[in-house]
């Protein structure tokens, strides 16, 4: 009974808070550019609008065109439910849950790319190809980061892994994971969510043909994924175990806000990289995580 209550509460928290993050990012971007910007809750309005709309589907598309976004949304939500939340701990924790989380995100990627291939459009094929190709490097970085946390805490379950002791490795890990966050969530400098040139897009190019409720599912899933990565990053770096529950909750919230603000600042101050450079930056992220792993290894050997 308590478990059901716990799960429902978490689910509501994830689903309701997630669309706030893109709003914050856009506000930061507007503020840096000296504009007033869209309201903080714009994505909520957009989701509500899309949900009420009808669907236009390509004549070529199969039911997978609609099932894809739904399964991807379910996978990302499932991954979020695995994530422990600071002082509240995890609801579903078991040995090796971290790998399930990583692979649920991969399942979401498979489904989004599948739905993109449905329409037979060259642009969407291009977007899907880029998404799955760059994810190869991001996956290497994530596994290295997971290994580093695992070595640091001597554990393979998220609940213990995500309460590390802060150290030199934390800075490296934070930098590496931040780059992965930007890449996996298709933010500048990897991808530009605001661009209008299809040839330079990744994620947006995949969803060109989606409309109505499926588009809402995609947008909402993307915001949950962003929140998931922000929470992961904060918990992987901050030693929250040592704080009192209230302070830990505050630290988590402040950390997620900081990450969101940083994404907004990066987006305002940097331009999108040329595609050739994306590989280079992702390799750098991988190396940062690998160095964090080596630091964790040295630290533990003492």
């Amino acid at each position: 009974m308590i478990l059901i209550f716990n799960l429902t509460f978490r689910l509501a928290l994830w689903l309701l808070l997630a669309p706030l993050l893109p709003g914050v990012i856009n506000k930061v971007k507007a503020w840096v550019a000296g504009r007033r910007g869209a309201p903080m809750f714009q994505l909520y309005y957009d989701l509500a609008k899309q949900w009420r709309k009808g669907v236009v589907m390509s004549t070529l598309a199969s039911p997978g065109f609609i099932a894809g976004p739904a399964v991807a949304w379910a996978a990302v939500t499932g991954a979020a439910m695995l994530m422990p939340l600071g002082p509240a701990g995890g609801a579903l924790s078991f040995r090796g849950d971290v790998l399930l989380l990583v692979y649920l995100l991969a399942l979401a990627r498979f489904c989004t790319a599948w739905a993109a291939m449905e329409t037979g459009s060259a642009f969407e094929g291009m977007g899907a190809a880029r998404e799955v190709s760059y994810a190869v490097l991001a996956e290497a970085a994530i596994i290295a980061a997971v290994l580093s946390l695992s070595v640091q805490t001597g554990s393979v379950s998220l609940i213990t892994m995500l309460s590390p002791s802060a150290g030199a490795g934390a800075v490296l890990l934070a930098a590496g994971l931040f780059a992965v966050l930007l890449s996996e969530n298709c933010r500048v400098p990897f991808d530009d969510p605001n661009t209008h040139l299809e040839l330079t897009m990744i994620h947006e190019a995949m969803i060109l043909d989606h409309s109505g409720p499926p588009l809402a599912a995609i947008l909402h899933g993307a915001s949950v994924k962003l929140l998931l990565f922000a929470v992961l990053l904060v918990q992987a770096v901050l030693p929250m175990r040592e704080l009192s529950p209230l302070a830990a909750a505050g630290a988590l919230a402040a950390g997620v806000l900081t990450v969101t603000l940083s994404v907004g600042l990066v987006e305002s101050l940097m331009a999108r990289l040329a595609f050739r450079r994306v590989t280079l930056l992702l390799t750098t992220a991988f190396l940062l995580c690998l160095f964090a792993l080596l630091v964790a290894w040295k630290g533990g050997a003492k």
């Binding site: 949900w51 009420r52 709309k53 009808g54 669907v55 236009v56 589907m57 390509s58 004549t59 070529l60 609609i66 329409t119 037979g120 459009s121 060259a122 642009f123 969407e124 299809e198 060109l208 043909d209 109505g212 409720p213 499926p214």
Partner: peptide, 15 residues
């Protein structure tokens, strides 16, 4: 939801 909201088929938009 998609069926009830009026599912329309059209040629792939492709920008």
């Amino acid at each position: 939801k998609a069926r009830r909201g009026g599912l329309r088929r059209a040629v792939t938009w492709d920008c």
